[in-house]
């Protein structure tokens, strides 16, 4: 794919992950200075009820400000948003976040598919998404939707993932634009950051 498509005009970067994905974030986030032109939205499978634990963990690893996710909060460039436990995270056309407590999808709430599909509908080609380590099939359908809407899709190289199932499942069932190891994922995000 063309280099220019990868890094230009991105308004939102979504990162989805399950088991073994937090380690990747902890590796990548401290090396990012600021998000100039886009928002970073993190959707991880997490235990219900353990609110703030994940937020606190991520906040000590990054200098980028974290915006507390409440219903209808606007998505603004320069901020990190973390999907709260026990809600699906959706995007409205006016680029605000909606939350939803409907049935679990892929045994998960938040579900990565739900967030990715909704973001694809709102952001179209101005979207990039990365699917990380995990032991679940969640995320593949969402990546497919993003690809069809013209967004950029990235999957963590299964050999570099603590749990290879989730990225492996995506690679088998759709064709991501890029398959990257952790170091390359960092470069990819930095490239979005330097372009506009």
């Amino acid at each position: 794919m063309e280099e220019s498509k990868i890094i230009s005009g991105c308004k939102a970067l979504l990162i989805g992950g399950s088991a073994g994905s937090l380690e990747v974030l902890i590796e990548v986030l401290p090396k990012l200075e600021q998000l100039k032109s886009f928002a970073l939205i993190i959707v991880l499978h997490r235990k219900s009820g353990e609110d703030n634990l994940l937020e606190n963990l991520i906040s000590i690893k990054t200098a980028i400000p974290i915006m507390e996710v409440e219903d209808k909060v606007p998505v603004e460039p320069g901020y990190i948003y973390i999907a709260p436990s026990d809600y699906h995270l959706l995007f409205e056309k006016d680029e605000t976040i909606s939350l939803d407590t409907s049935e679990k999808v892929n045994y998960s709430r938040p579900s990565i598919d739900v967030a990715f599909e909704s973001a694809a509908d709102v952001y179209g080609p101005s979207l990039a998404a990365i699917l990380l380590s995990g032991a679940n099939a969640d995320g593949t359908a969402g990546l497919q939707a993003i690809k069809e809407a013209g967004g950029v899709t990235v999957v963590q190289k299964p050999e570099s993932a603590e749990v290879a199932y989730m990225p492996g499942y995506a690679i088998e069932n759709m064709s991501p634009d890029l398959v990257l190891d952790i170091r390359q994922i960092l470069e990819f995000v930095k490239n979005i950051n330097t372009s506009k």
Binding site: L90, F91, E92, K93, S98, D100, S102, V114, S118
Partner: peptide, 9 residues
């Protein structure tokens, strides 16, 4: 209603 959620429903 929130369109994002309604669409999914």
């Amino acid at each position: 209603y929130s369109k994002a959620s309604l669409k999914r429903r």
